[in-house]
């Protein structure tokens, strides 16, 4: 149920686009209005979300320390896993953001028994997670060719690299393959690993189905149901130049399906767990230096509290203290 409904939702989205374009001729709605709206929701939503997080103070300095602290000079500090400087923190964050350092930690194994079965799913999670995010980014960058009049050199180089296997025509992009494989893996593990299945919500399946839909429609469009690339670019360029127009011999329906699913993803993004992308940069257990014994961390809402003062304490115990030979303030 938790997986079925999201699946049906994605199918409905696909059908909506097909029916909307094929039967109702709503090209303008699906090609212009919805993408604009989705982009607006995405931008506003993500900014709102990040700002709303950013506005919440960090009252305490609570990094999770994963290495030796800075202490006596002859003890070697772990500068990245337990940073005390901005450089250390930045390196830690970069490792976290670009290489999923913490997920990678799961890899370390020893004294395992039995045959190779022993390699846990953790390594795969890291690999699939990393492949998924990186290929997603590369594919996104590759798509810049549709949004720039002259395709920038780096994008061209990326395309070359990506298709260096020289398979098929149009040339097969390696990222497409890895991307689809990674998404599929991430989806399958939600069904097969009981612990993960147990914790998965509809909100975990929906983005996976949606992204899978985007990937599949994109691949279909490039390799199988060929669509008019020139028409696509004409439309996308008109969108980015804010003079939207649907080309006469516009791209085929599959393009609208692809675009509609992307729009859905963009619009859904700020309200979902997908905003973890922005959140990771703000995570107080990762983005703070462990220097709170050297530099005072200030809590903006620190307020005075009721304490039991020494005076009150002495009043309670003065006689006992005197008997025990403990010095007191008031005799």
């Amino acid at each position: 149920m938790r997986a079925l409904l999201p699946f049906i939702t994605v199918i409905v989205l696909v059908l909506l686009a097909i029916v909307g374009v094929e039967a109702a001729n709503l090209q303008f709605l699906f090609g212009v209005v919805i993408p604009y709206a989705a982009a607006a929701i995405f931008l506003a939503g993500v900014i709102y979300k990040v700002v709303s997080w950013g506005r919440v103070p960090v009252p305490f300095r609570i990094p999770t320390t994963c290495g030796q602290q800075k202490t006596l000079p002859w003890i070697k500090q772990s500068r990245i896993e337990n940073p005390t400087t901005s450089a250390g923190v930045i390196t830690r964050m970069l490792l976290e953001v670009f290489l999923f350092r913490s997920l990678f930690r799961n890899l370390k194994t020893e004294l395992r028994e039995g045959p190779q079965l022993s390699y846990g799913s953790d390594k795969w999670l890291w690999l699939a997670g990393l492949s998924f995010h990186w290929t997603f980014l590369l594919i996104l960058i590759r798509h810049l060719r549709f949004f720039t009049q002259n395709v920038p050199i780096p994008v061209q180089m990326l395309e070359h690299l990506d298709s260096f296997l020289q398979i098929g025509l149009p040339l097969l992009y390696i990222t497409d393959v890895i991307f689809l494989a990674a998404v599929t893996f991430l989806l399958i593990r939600r069904f097969t690993i009981p612990q993960v299945k147990y914790i998965s919500l509809a909100a975990d399946y929906f983005p996976l189905f949606l992204i899978l839909g985007i990937g599949v429609s994109g691949v279909l469009m490039r390799y199988f149901i060929k669509t008019d690339v020139v028409g696509v670019k004409e439309l996308t360029m008109s969108l980015v130049s804010f003079s939207p127009a649907i080309p006469k011999d516009g791209p085929g329906t599959i393009f609208y399906v692809h675009l509609f699913l992307i729009s859905a993803l963009f619009a859904y993004f700020p309200f979902s767990k997908l905003v973890h992308m922005g959140g990771v940069f703000l995570s107080p257990t990762r983005n703070l230096a462990n220097n709170s014994r050297m530099v005072r961390h200030v809590n903006p809402w620190n307020y005075p509290v009721k304490v039991h003062t020494y005076e009150e304490y002495e009043n309670d115990f003065r006689e006992k203290m005197k008997t025990a030979g403990i010095p007191v303030e008031k005799e």
Partner: peptide, 15 residues
Amino acid sequence: PADTSLFLKKQKNRF
């Protein structure tokens, strides 16, 4: 419990 039993079976690291 079902979600635990697979962990108990699959995780070979004794620690």
